[in-house]
């Protein structure tokens, strides 16, 4: 038996008795970033494919929530900083080794693009909208001519944003639970799934809802595969990662993770979507709301559990 006691009374806030440097702001931002990435990905994808009319909500309506959620996410991030007035230092350098650095720059690309996307589609929401100044109209026309270029940039950067929400955690080898490259694809899948769910929730078109529900089902299957894969990887790894996995396999996070994330956030909505596709009548908003709830819980649980997992020495 090995027992380790810090006898000098180190009780540094945010570190002792275990790391708790990141609170609700970070997982909330990761959820909102993933959700925005998911919505913008589908908007860009269907524009590139020329299916704007078939997927009207995905391309023209759902993106309207992305500037709002991105800004809420950015406020949450800013709130979390402890040296707030120096936040601009983020934008004085690009450090490719630091996921937070290129994540910050990715947000600087995606957020303005989300505004531009909304401006181009504003007449869908406000049919009488008129840009007062001629130069604004010219700028709008310029973007409209280059909508394919914008779509490609958005498609790529929304994928980077979605992956980055997971890589942010997986870059920390000090926290064995986070230190798995599966988190990148898992958080991307979770963000795409939440994005598809948001489109199902907002869409009034039956065809679009059915298609997005089908896509969501595939993504949920991928997520379940990645989660199983993640635990297989942990259990076949070193003691610290076995201990990390045990936080979810009998440890304090077992019930929240398997109940809220896997059952309520993935399996249950998947069953509802399958039943709906088979023609059973039920309120269409239950499954997407559960999917988004699961996506949020996944980030909260991974963020908090990761800070409890550590090296032994």
């Amino acid at each position: 038996m090995k027992e380790e006691i810090i006898t000098s009374g180190r009780m540094n806030p945010y570190i002792d008795p275990h790391l708790n440097i990141w609170h609700w702001q970070i997982p909330l931002y990761l959820f909102l970033g993933g959700l925005a990435a998911g919505i913008l990905f589908f908007a860009a994808l269907y524009t590139i494919q020329g299916k704007q009319d078939k997927y009207r909500t995905a391309v023209k309506i759902a993106p309207f929530i992305t500037p709002f959620i991105l800004i809420i996410g950015l406020i949450a991030l800013f709130w979390d900083l402890k040296h707030k007035l120096y936040f601009w230092q983020l934008y004085t350098t690009i450090r490719f080794e630091s996921p937070m650095s290129w994540g910050a720059w990715t947000l600087m690309v995606v957020t303005p693009l989300s505004f531009i996307w909304c401006a181009l589609n504003i007449k869908v929401i406000f049919p009488d909208w008129d840009w007062k100044f001629q130069w604004v109209k010219e700028v709008e026309a310029f973007f409209r001519r280059n909508i394919l270029v914008i779509s490609w940039i958005l498609l790529i950067f929304s994928l980077i944003l979605g992956v980055y929400t997971g890589i942010l955690f997986s870059a920390f080898n000090a926290r064995p639970l986070w230190n798995t490259s599966i988190l990148g694809p898992l958080f991307l899948a979770s963000g795409l799934s939440a994005g598809a769910a948001a489109i199902v929730l907002l869409s009034k078109d039956h065809f679009e809802r059915v298609q997005m529900a089908k896509i969501d089902l595939i993504i949920i299957a991928v997520e379940l595969f990645l989660i199983i894969h993640m635990f297989m990887g942990f259990l076949a790894s070193t003691q610290v990662q076995i201990d990390a996995a045990n936080l979810f396999l009998g440890g304090p996070y077992t019930t929240p993770f398997w109940l809220f994330v896997v059952m309520l956030g993935m399996v249950f909505p998947a069953i509802l979507e399958i039943l709906e596709l088979r023609g059973y009548k039920m309120p269409h908003y239950i499954a997407p709301i559960l999917v988004m709830f699961g996506s949020l819980m996944l980030r909260f649980i991974i963020a908090y559990a990761g800070q409890e997992s550590r090296w032994l020495y």
């Binding site: 945010y14 002792d16 402890k82 120096y86 230092q89 920390f172």
Partner: peptide, 27 residues
């Protein structure tokens, strides 16, 4: 100190938990 934004990434990244957030904001 004047470049640190207090994001906490380095605190989370240290396997020895050797860093702390100074009350003035920087790490």
């Amino acid at each position: 100190h004047h470049k640190c934004i207090g994001c906490g990434a380095c605190i989370a990244s240290c396997p020895y938990d050797a860093r702390y957030s100074h009350p003035d904001g920087y790490v």
